[in-house]
């Protein structure tokens, strides 16, 4: 989706690859974070390299850049990226008001409390709106968790998780019926959405490997058999 930029981002990635422990690339990496924000791309390795340089030289740390990295990491859920970043950020820096907010948001996402998440997010638009694509990314995560859990999800539950209602939700559903194989059924109280099948919401699809014995275990009894 970002066809214009690869030439530039390639150089920064190359810089990291050539020497990941080089203090001189700090400002390149900061620029790269801003590129990721404006181009809606993501590179965890580069961002961790930057946080590492901040960790080595705390006086060079930019709160604004760290904030952008953390928001990008939230958008990478269900991956553990947000924690991976926090592990590298000194505790007193994490005490900054906007980081506290992001940590609370992450907590709501990690514990699938989407109602609280969207409430809290709406109060902090000024921090989050800096990064385009935030809402869509979280909606993707919500759908991911719903698809792990539900074969059929009541419409209000889905609406709450992705924070879309009414006509907008109809449109959203229409899109996924056409593209993701969702089916809409009539339920007792509300519409029911049948999510796409996967091995997580249909455990019977999982391969059962419990009764296989690895070959090297069998080889142990060869001497006995001979």
């Amino acid at each position: 989706m970002e066809s214009e930029q690869p030439a530039e981002s390639y150089t920064v990635e190359e810089l990291v690859a050539v020497n990941p422990y080089n203090p001189d690339i700090l400002s390149d990496l900061e620029g790269f974070v801003n590129d990721q924000v404006s181009n809606q791309t993501y590179n965890l390795d580069a961002n961790l390299s930057l946080l590492r340089l901040y960790q080595f030289e705390p006086e060079r740390l930019s709160v604004q850049i760290v904030s952008r990295i953390l928001i990008k990491a939230l958008m990478a859920m269900p991956g553990p990226d947000f924690s991976l970043c926090l592990f590298l950020i000194p505790e007193q820096v994490q005490m900054e008001e906007q980081f506290k907010t992001l940590i609370v948001l992450s907590h709501y996402l990690e514990t699938a409390r989407f109602r609280q998440f969207w409430d809290e997010a709406s109060k902090n638009r000024s921090i989050l709106d800096v990064v385009p694509g935030f809402e869509q990314a979280i909606q993707m995560y919500a759908i991911h968790v719903l698809s792990l859990t539900y074969q059929k999800v009541p419409r209000p539950v889905l609406a709450e998780a992705i924070n879309i209602e009414g006509l907008a939700l109809d449109k959203f559903l229409e899109y996924h019926v056409a593209n993701s194989g969702w089916v809409i059924e009539k339920g007792a109280h509300s519409h029911i959405i049948v999510l796409s099948r996967n091995e997580f919401n249909h455990p019977e699809l999982k391969k059962n490997t419990a009764e296989t014995v690895p070959f090297e275990h069998v080889t142990r009894i060869f001497p006995v058999l001979s």
Partner: peptide, 12 residues
């Protein structure tokens, strides 16, 4: 519902 989804999220 949140707890059940958390279970799924944390166990994957």
């Amino acid at each position: 519902r949140s707890i059940l989804m958390t279970y799924k999220h944390k166990m994957h």
